[in-house]
């Protein structure tokens, strides 16, 4: 390997499916031993990119190297160095959990004794020891997912790809998976490429995060770097009984308010030092004839970074219609 500390190098990858551009000229590097999060809404192109990097799909143009090998020309070598948990469930329903792991280990030529020890340890860690010899057909969705994450570690891959690893899991199982991943990383050096549409997952696990929307990377950096790009440092969410132009203007005109985003009767106000300014803000709204039903302050999250860059929420069903940037003069509509 030339650049000794790059696990993944992506340069100008584009993938088109007919007229759909699933991945649009994407370039980035993943450093060895980091957890790199790929955050984006449904249909953003996350799975397509993972499939390109894991040799399942050929890019339309551009190039990528994984573990130093070209994903198209040296796909065999790439497969030797990676472990992948695809987004869809891929464990074999007609086999037991143990058999699924055993067969997988053999596909990677892991020696029998090591295989046995690792499977035992991994099953223990994901809490499936008691069900190890039951058919996967009898597992719950969450159990099946945990098995698949354990299975991919039997061969101790240097680079691990996880495509939405906790999709469909309840919050408790999600935390089990997160703890498991953190623990693993303490024990082995391993680069992790993780896609998700859960902010919290990207934020708590990743060293660096790329935010992708409609096939394009719109922001890249550590969670704190990304959050520092948005104005203010806190977000105050207010629910009012009604909203008038007058009230909105009042809020925008406060000198500590950077930006507001309105969704129905809820206003998200980007402010400096929210705890200090909240009482004042409520007073001003009351003076201009509004009534505040509830108020909450929260620190900025990656969700806010996404909204800042795209003008919409990561969850498509909560698309914000209009947002205003304070200080830019007239209210401005944020295009997609």
């Amino acid at each position: 390997m030339g650049q000794d500390n790059k696990a993944i190098e992506v340069s100008g990858i584009t993938k088109k499916f007919g007229s759909i551009v699933a991945v649009n000229n994407v370039s980035f590097d993943v450093i060895e031993d980091e957890i790199f999060g790929f955050l984006g809404p449904n249909g953003a192109g996350k799975t397509t990119l993972v499939r390109i990097l894991t040799t399942l799909v050929k890019p339309t143009s551009g190039a990528a190297r994984v573990a130093g090998y070209d994903v198209v020309k040296e796909s065999d070598a790439v497969r030797h160095h990676i472990g992948v948990v695809p987004q869809a469930m891929t464990s074999d329903l007609d086999l037991t959990g143990y058999e699924n792991m055993d067969i997988y280990g053999r596909f990677y030529s892991v020696a029998a004794k090591e295989r046995k020890e690792r499977i035992k340890y991994l099953l223990e860690t994901v809490g499936l020891t008691a069900r190890a010899h039951d058919l996967v057909a009898t597992y719950s969705g969450g159990m099946r997912r945990r098995l698949e994450i354990a299975r991919v570690l039997v061969h101790r891959p240097g680079i691990l790809f996880l495509d939405e690893p906790t999709i469909g899991l309840d919050p408790q199982s999600r935390h089990v998976v997160w703890d498991f991943l953190r623990k693993l990383r303490e024990e082995f050096t391993m680069t992790v490429f993780l896609t998700t549409h859960y902010m919290e997952e990207a934020e708590t696990l990743s060293g660096r995060v790329a935010i992708i929307d409609s096939g394009k990377i719109i922001a890249l950096g550590s969670p704190s770097e990304l959050k520092s790009q948005i104005p203010g440092n806190d977000i105050v969410s207010l629910t009012a009984d009604k909203l008038s132009e007058n009230i909105i203007d009042t809020i925008k005109n406060q000198n500590y308010v950077h930006k507001i985003v309105i969704e129905n009767t809820t206003i998200r106000v980007y402010v400096d030092n929210g705890a200090q300014h909240l009482p004042q803000l409520i007073d001003e709204i009351r003076l201009s004839g509004g009534k505040i039903l509830s108020a909450a302050i929260h620190e900025q999250s990656l969700e806010d970074v996404f909204i800042h860059h795209t003008g919409k929420s990561i969850r498509e069903e909560e698309v914000r219609k209009v947002s205003y940037l304070v200080g830019a003069g007239t209210p401005q509509k944020w295009g997609r």
């Binding site: 894991t54 040799t55 497969r79 990676i82 596909f107 990677y108 698949e148």
Partner: peptide, 14 residues
């Protein structure tokens, strides 16, 4: 059909 071919196509199996 079941989408489980990915799990071995991703391995070094030839």
């Amino acid at each position: 059909f079941l989408g489980i071919d990915e799990c071995y196509l991703l391995t070094p199996i030839s």
